[in-house]
Simulated assay, not measured.
Amino acid sequence: MQLISFLIILLIILCQVLEVYAYFIKGMNSGIYGRQLVGLANWIQYVARINYVFVLFLISYSFEVLGVGSHILEVISISFFTSFVISISLIYFKSPRNLIHKLLYFLIRYTYRDLVKISINFDKNAIKLSWPMLTSFISSMLLGLAFIMPFVLAEKYPDYRMMAIYSGQALNFLASAIIFSMLEPRMYKELDGNVTEGIVCSTASGIIAAKSFSQFVMCLLILVVI
C-alpha cells in the first residue's frame, strides 16, 4: 500500500505540474515558434491526461481491492499541496521552469526539437485579478472535483457507483467547455495582438496563477471532506 500511495502522489503531482507548465508554453508569444509552442503545450497536456488514467486506476484499485476507503483522500490531499508548492515556485523562479523543461527533454526532442532550448520568461506583475483568472479558477475547481467526487460519492452511495463516475465526467466536460470557449480564445486573441516576444501573456499568467491556487483550495476542501 505504501508503494501505491507513493505512486499516486508522484503521478498526481506530475499531472498537476505539467498542466500548469503547459500554459507557460502555450501563453508565450513567439513570432518564429508560435504554432509549435501551442503544439508542444497540447502534447504536454495530453501526456498529463494519460497519467491521470494511471492515477485513477491506482486509486480505484486502492479503493475497491485494498479497501482503504476515504483514507485515500489523505494521499490525494498531500499530492495537491505539493503540486501547489511546485507550481508557485514555477511562477516566482526561473530555475524550476528550466528544470521542468530539461526533464521533458525526450518528450520535446522527438516532437518539437526546435523548442528544446527555449527560455520562458514570466512577469509576476502581469498577474492581476481578472475575468480570465476567475474563469480559470472555476474550471480548475471543476476538474479537481471531477477527479475526487466519484470516490466520495461511491463510498457514501455504493449502489450508485456508475452514476458517481459519470457525474465526474459531466464536470470534466463542463470544465473543458469553459477552457475551450472562454479562456483560450481570449488568450490567443491577446497573443495575436501586441505582446512582448518571449514573455507569457497576461491572460495566460492569470490562468497559471488560478490553476496553482486552485490546487491549494482543493487540498483544503479534501481535508474538510475527510
Rank of each mutant, 00 (worst) to 15 (best):
W43Y: 10
S140Q: 07
Y92S: 03
L18Y: 10
F147K: 05
Y46P: 07
I226H: 06
Y23G: 08
S83M: 06
I208H: 03
Y166P: 08
D123H: 13
D114T: 12
S5W: 15
L58H: 02
P96L: 05
A175H: 09
P150T: 12
V195P: 04
G34C: 05
L191A: 03
K94L: 10
L7R: 06
V65Y: 00
I4Y: 12
I44R: 04
L221T: 09
F93C: 00
K26G: 11
R161C: 08
L143I: 10
M28I: 04
N194Q: 09
N125Q: 13
M187D: 01
V195E: 00
F147A: 09
I32T: 05
M163A: 15
V20A: 14
P132S: 04
A210R: 02
F84N: 02
E19N: 08
V85L: 15
Y160S: 14
Y110W: 09
M218F: 11
K117Y: 11
V217R: 05
Y61M: 14
Y21W: 00
A170T: 13
I148C: 04
P96D: 00
A48Q: 10
F180E: 10
R49F: 15
I100F: 13
V152D: 05
S205P: 10
C15D: 12
I9M: 12
T82H: 06
K102V: 02
I178V: 11
G31P: 12
V116L: 02
L142A: 11
L11K: 09
A170N: 02
S77L: 03
F106K: 06
L14N: 11
N29D: 02
S89E: 03
E184N: 06
F216I: 09
A175V: 08
K102G: 03
F122E: 00
T135D: 01
F6H: 05
V85M: 12
L129I: 15
S5Y: 15
S89I: 15
Q215Y: 11
V116G: 05
S89Y: 15
P158R: 03
C15I: 12
L145R: 05
I222C: 11
I179Q: 09
K156A: 05
S77Y: 03
S176L: 12
I9R: 07
V68D: 01
F63N: 13
L223P: 06
A210L: 04
F213Y: 15
F147D: 06
K102Y: 06
G144K: 06
F122Q: 07
L58R: 10
V225L: 15
C201E: 05
F81V: 00
F24K: 01
V47T: 04
S60Y: 13
N194M: 05
V225R: 09
